[in-house]
Structure formats: C-alpha cells, structure tokens
C-alpha cells in the first residue's frame, strides 16, 4: 500500500468524471430538440424536432444510445436519456385542446440543446 507523502493534506474527494458519467441536464432545464435528419434508423420522431420544452427528469441509468444499437453496436460510450415535457401547443400551433396539455417523451442527450 503506497504511503502518502508526509506533510501532504488529506487528498480532496474531488474526482474527475469521464464523459457520460454525469447527466448533462437536470430537471427544470429549458431545452430544444435538435433539428437534424439521420437516415436508416433514429429514435427521435420528426414531430418533436426543433421544439422547445423542459426536462422533467433524468432517466435513472446511463445507457448506450439506442440509435447506435440499431446497427448492432451494443457497447460504447454511455449517456443519459431525459424525460422531456413539450406543450402540445408548441408541437401543433393549431392545437385546440387545453393549453396545459403536453407531451412527455424520452430523448437521448445528444439530441438536446440549451433553449
């Protein structure tokens, strides 16, 4: 067991986290869904792209981006999904229901931008 050098202070408990260790967003953050057009496989439906909303919660465990899994890549960098709330009036400007009606959807962090 390596001996601490004499005279050094107790090492700080601060540790450097790897990319993807920590969620990028937190509940309440204002976000926008990115606009881009992957082909062949995606899990962010077109109707939410470019729309603004709020992060409701971080989905508990870090996971592989399922868009990558579509072609058999089942390992790699983990990241977080977020449950995002988007008003239906934001999605559909002519929406006729209550202004409080909203969508909740899981979006992987590579699709979220600061609003």
């Amino acid at each position: 067991m390596p001996e601490p050098a004499s005279g050094t202070a107790t090492p700080s408990l601060h540790t450097v986290k790897s990319f993807g260790d920590q969620p990028v967003w937190k509940a309440g953050d204002a976000i926008r869904i990115s606009v881009r057009y992957p082909i062949a496989h995606y899990r962010v439906p077109r109707y939410i792209r470019g729309k603004r909303g709020l992060v409701e919660m971080v989905i508990a465990r870090a996971l592989v981006n399922n868009e990558e899994e579509g072609f058999g890549r089942n390992a790699g960098q983990l990241g977080y999904y977020y449950r995002v709330a988007i008003p239906l009036q934001e999605l559909w400007p002519d929406y006729v229901g209550s202004p409080n009606d909203n969508l909740r959807i899981e979006v992987f962090e590579t699709w979220l931008e600061k609003n």
Binding site: A40, G70, F71
Partner: peptide, 15 residues
C-alpha cells in the same frame, strides 16, 4: 442472446 437486439429488430422493420 443479442443475435438480433430489439433495436436491430426495429431498424430491420423500418428498412
């Protein structure tokens, strides 16, 4: 068995 994962199945149907 990850011979065909759920995500690969989805992609396969889409394609």
């Amino acid at each position: 068995h990850k011979i065909i994962s759920t995500e690969e199945k989805r992609r396969g149907v889409e394609s």
